[in-house]
Nucleic acid binder design. Structure first.
Lengths: 254, 254
DNA sequence: GAGTGGTCTAGACCACGAC
DNA sequence: TCGTGGTCTAGACCACTCA
């Protein structure tokens, strides 16, 4: 038995973490309330709350005001850049697939993102990524991806209205789509040959925290540009994952 | 004037953030103490502390027990994978450079990482990355990179002892090195042709938090493998940046 | 209306750093 | 020794969710 002179809140956080690991407190099940934990560990409520702050920062629990806390599932994706987009390219009617089904190793039938599509003028920021004038008409697509009901990640992406207007890609029936964004563009005769990705780590916005059901941990945010013939034909700004929800893999040839 | 019914601590955090932006509280200068802020804003100390928690999570301040808080500088690097390693390859005696000087746009003379070199047996984890037996002798290199005194990132990396033993690369005189790791290996006749990187976001370990002078924000952690002739010749596990200290850029050709 | 988490107060003791 | 932040207590009121 080792002496434990660490702060009480850290000990409690560890103990609760162990219970989650052991499955004593299950994924999606209600977490003990502040009052219960206060009672069990014989500490003040602030000490309980400090312990839960640790678990929240680790992304292990999610807390909703007035309702309680829940254990967050860990759904780690391996997002291998070199092969995920090739999955898009090689999707066939017989074996439909997308980069996302590739990341999670799931069948296409389990791929049913929520989607909201709207027209929008290019903000200066998106315009620069697209290398077009600010104000250029775009089609904006907000997606939320889920696995067994739990959100895995979300994205906001844009096509040039000029390119997709009047096609199925501009409608809500464009998801789920075999071949993903690359499939969309291919159906319009545009062949994507290059993808540029920028990765950042930051704290989530309130909306991101709500949608992704995370209370305090960091997110990984990817800004993506797809190019065809040297021209930018799709911009995703941004694709947002819970910090512990993905491992990105890239290769660089010299 | 908009009504502000947001929590008091959030308002205080915003106000302090504005003061940092405006330079009223400068980088590296002492931050007001809890007692001073308590006095100024007429709130309890816990409320002050909650406000500082926000700034810590954003990486804007760093706090050391018994001493106080300090404003953290923002030293963002653009870490462009496609070009940074080419900088290593194209380093010459006339114009020495490394991937790191490329990232930060600094002259080689400003590149002076702290370095600790040791021999170590491969842990199962590192061994798997190296594709060798666990226990294989390695040379371990712990580096800390700084810019104008402030730590920008840190790394732990490994060479095969068999490959570098008895050469300058195994000694402390191997840093700073023109051409970085690729230059090290090139001097031994090993030509790196491929680099694999894995990116994760997580909370820092206590040691990382101390070295990088961050109190609560997330880090970006990169695991890197360098290959020559299909063989792994260098493993970095891990290269750790403060979450707001870097933007990674990758390209994927289809 | 009962239970939940979010916020806030006004104290207290401690370990640590600077002087 | 004194000021600092870290931890902890024992209350309180509020907004929110759910039955």
């Amino acid at each position: 038995m080792e002496t434990d002179d660490r702060p009480r809140y850290a000990q409690i956080a560890d103990e609760l973490g162990r219970r989650i690991d052991a499955g004593i407190i299950g994924v999606g099940l209600p977490f003990p309330s502040d009052a219960q934990l206060q009672e069990e560990f014989s500490v003040a409520r602030n000490t309980v709350r400090q312990a839960l702050d640790v678990l929240r920062a680790q992304g292990r629990i999610h807390t909703v005001k007035g309702r309680g806390s829940y254990v967050r599932p860990r759904v780690p994706a391996r997002r291998v850049a070199a092969s995920r987009y090739k999955a898009d390219v090689s999707s066939t009617p017989d074996r439909p697939q997308t980069a996302v089904t590739h990341d999670y190793g799931i069948p296409f039938s389990q791929h049913n993102p929520d989607v909201v599509i709207a027209r929008e003028s290019a903000s200066p920021e998106v315009a620069e990524l697209f290398q077009v004038e600010a104000g250029t008409p775009l089609v904006r697509r907000d997606l939320v991806f889920r696995l067994e009901g739990w959100p895995t990640h979300m994205s906001t992406s844009f096509y040039l209205a000029e390119m997709v207007d009047g096609t199925w890609v501009a409608g809500p029936g464009s998801e789920p789509a075999p071949g993903g964004a690359i499939g969309h563009l291919a159906s319009l005769g545009v062949r994507v040959t290059r993808v540029l990705e920028t990765v950042e780590s930051r704290m989530p916005s309130p909306r991101e925290a709500e949608v992704l059901r995370m209370s305090a941990g960091p997110v990984l945010a990817i800004t993506r540009r797809m190019l065809a013939d040297g021209r930018v034909v799709e911009v995703a700004r941004e694709i947002v994952y819970p910090g512990d929800g993905v491992r990105l893999e890239y290769e660089v040839d010299l």
